[in-house]
Amino acid sequence: MAHRWGMVIDLDRCTGCEACVVACHAENNIATVGEKQAAMGRAIHWIRVERHWEGEFPNVRVRFQPIPCQQCDDAPCEPVCPTYASYQNAQGLNAQIYNRCIGTRYCANACPYTGRYFNWFNPSWDKPLQLQLNPDVSIRESGVMEKCTFCFQRILAAEANAQAEKRQLRDGEFSPACVQSCPSEAMVFGDLDDPQSEVSRLSRSDRGVKLLGEVGTFPKVTYLTRES
């Protein structure tokens, strides 16, 4: 079964709570780097929440925008990789093959969304924090790029499950970690090839926009704009 995984993020629902940010850390064994390295711009957040300020006091407004990898159909990060570590898999995901990556960081340079993060050193966890690690996700070492995978491990697990039960995947039967936790249900995940799926339905919304759509990346993340 082919799928084309996509995501919708409703900016009218998103409250900027960052549950998605921590959920992604917990699910995907993302290392914390500590104050010194973080101050040098080396913190890793596969999903981050941007903010856009408008106006001056007291007429101030803010708009939040969570930004994971946009999983572009025409991904600028892919053709620039000399080792094909950054590639598009059969389900349309921009995947990163860690043990192929040699750390040129061309892909990070090419990504217009700054969605790719570099490991400046080997991650370490003060014992017994290593017990939090998710055995379904590999740990990345020094010199390797990493990024949002749409929680690929969860996709694989759900597919294996469905296969074992000899059935099709059901829309909404699993979610990536960020989507699952989002308290205001701002995020929806699913198969864009299934016209009936919630994510397909919402992607067709009048409010739907692509982030920097004009650069021609054809992202599989659709934002629903705020109504005010």
Partner: peptide
């Protein structure tokens, strides 16, 4: 919470595994 957690709730594993 109907299946949802906030950021602080998400971080709770690090209480148990705190060094």
């Amino acid at each position: 919470n109907l299946g949802k957690l906030c950021a602080r709730g998400q971080a709770g594993l690090q209480v148990t595994y705190n060094p």
